[in-house]
Design a protein around this nucleic acid. Structure first.
Length: 422
RNA sequence: GCCCCCAUCGACUAGCGGCCCAGGUCACGGCCCUUUCAAGGCCGUAGCGCGGGUUCGAAUCCCGCUGGGGGCACCA
């Protein structure tokens, strides 16, 4: 039987990084098996629905590269079907009416068990299962009824979801059995915890997919990182691009213990992907990202600066703070200039008539000037960097100067050389 | 309170009885390279929660404890 899974978020807010990890595992598993992925919005609780949430979920999945088959389904659209199924259960004596609601009759002896794909056998004593509401008194189904019912109707073969659903599983199994449905395989993924060891939530900094996107993470890096949260390929492989992930993923290698989200490792991995991009591709991505975030520097300059920052920053969002000097002047910290003013004057003289004004030529001229002043490169270039880029940290000085151009460079050198000592 | 799950370096993990006085990656520390910052190279610190078993032999199996997480709605 062909594999068919579903990702079933509730539209109560943006797509959380833990939720997208669940979506990813569903997707990787299905694509690996040449199966199908369904996207189902579980909106049986209208009151908690957040406008825009569905659009945001959709956008997040698309950005990450997680596609799905068919149309997006909304649980509430199947209201009549749910009511029909509930009536059937009542007719068969598996459910009964109670205060206007329909309740399912849970067995009160024995156990309900299943072999979880990631956790092994899990058993629940039936006496702990309470008769749960299938249909509210207003006729809307509850999650624990609608979800398994839809799984049945959709022909879901594998339910891959977060471990917080473990205790719902015996209830859903009982319902499915009463409905006469074949049971899907269940795989409960470990939770994702914040760096304080608690379950990831909104108070843990960046947790929505959109925030990661805004900070300049690459979708393939985020995907790679997320896959590593609970799954591993082998004893040594860390960098695994999307296609490789699809090729090698298996539910059997998913671990059972909760994982802590580590922003530092994600940033490192993002840097790995950024650096592995061909220069052209890197520039394309950088421009697209900057435009998306409203950065207005001219494209030609951005593209020219791209190679200077590619090796330097782990997130595209750091571009502006690192290379912003190419687009606007900023006031250098006068204190840092102290003692460096003679160097600034020498640099200005060295660059004034330099031809051609290339990085190589600039380097030669500046090194020569430093030598004449009896300064080590380190000492000589610090004030120049500060004066030209406005910062103690910057891309390569010579490339930066060549890019800035002679006029602007000289202007900045003069400005700082003539400024008052602190 | 009751039920379920989990437990290897600070973090993610490999390990499915001998190959492990535990391997990889991030982070951290040192050195090298170096115009800053990165990147890169080399080296290093650091872990099987505790107690019982089983076995010739346990990180690996079993039990208990402790710790952590999740769940007990006419929420999803």
């Amino acid at each position: 039987m062909a594999v068919r899974v579903r990702f079933a978020p509730s539209p109560t807010g943006f797509l959380h990084i833990g939720g997208v990890r669940t979506a990813l595992f569903n997707w990787l598993f299905a694509r690996h098996e040449n199966g199908e992925v369904l996207l189902r919005i579980e909106n049986t609780d209208h009151s908690r629905e957040v406008e825009e949430a569905v659009e945001q979920i959709r956008r997040s999945l698309v950005w990450l590269g997680l596609d799905w088959d068919g149309e997006v389904a909304f649980q509430l659209d199947r209201l009549e079907r749910h009511q029909e199924l509930a009536r059937g259960l009542v007719a068969e004596g598996n459910a009964y009416e109670d205060d206007g609601a329909i309740r399912f009759r849970m067995p009160d002896e024995g156990t309900t068990a299943w072999d979880d794909v990631v956790r092994g056998r899990i058993e629940f004593p039936n006496e702990k299962l309470e008769d749960l509401v299938l249909l509210r008194s207003d006729g809307r189904p509850t999650y624990n009824f609608a979800s398994p019912a839809d799984d049945m109707d959709d022909g879901i073969t594998h339910v891959v979801r977060g471990e917080d659903h473990v205790s719902n599983t015996p209830k859903q199994i009982r319902i499915l059995e009463a409905l006469g449905a074949a049971l899907p395989a269940y795989a409960h993924l470990p939770n994702v915890l914040g760096e304080d060891g608690r379950k990831l939530s909104k108070r843990h900094g960046a947790v929505s997919v959109e925030e990661f996107r805004a900070q300049g993470y690459l979708p393939e890096a985020l995907m790679n990182y997320l896959a590593l949260l609970g799954w591993s390929l082998d004893e040594k492989t860390t960098v695994i691009p999307p296609e490789e992930l699809v090729r090698t993923f298996s539910l059997e290698r998913v671990g059972a213990s909760a994982a802590t989200f580590d922003y530092a490792k994600l940033a490192w991995l993002n840097g790995v992907y950024l650096r592995s991009l061909a220069p052209e591709a890197y520039a394309d991505r950088l421009v697209a990202y900057l435009r998306e975030t409203g950065f207005e520097g001219d494209e030609e300059t951005i593209r020219a600066a791209a190679p200077l920052v590619q090796e330097k920053v782990p997130k595209l969002g750091e571009f502006a703070s690192f290379a912003g000097f190419l687009f606007a002047r900023s006031e250098p910290d006068a204190e840092g200039l102290d003692g460096g003013r003679p160097v600034l004057a020498a640099a200005r003289d060295a660059l004034a008539g330099l031809e051609p004004f290339t990085a190589e030529a600039v380097e030669g001229a500046l090194r020569e000037a430093a030598e004449r002043l009896g300064l080590k490169p380190r000492q000589a270039f610090a004030p120049i960097r500060l004066a030209v880029t406005g910062s103690k940290v910057s891309p390569g000085l010579f490339e930066s100067i060549a890019l800035l151009g002679r006029d602007e460079t000289l202007a900045r050198l003069e400005l700082s050389a003539g400024s008052e000592p602190a």
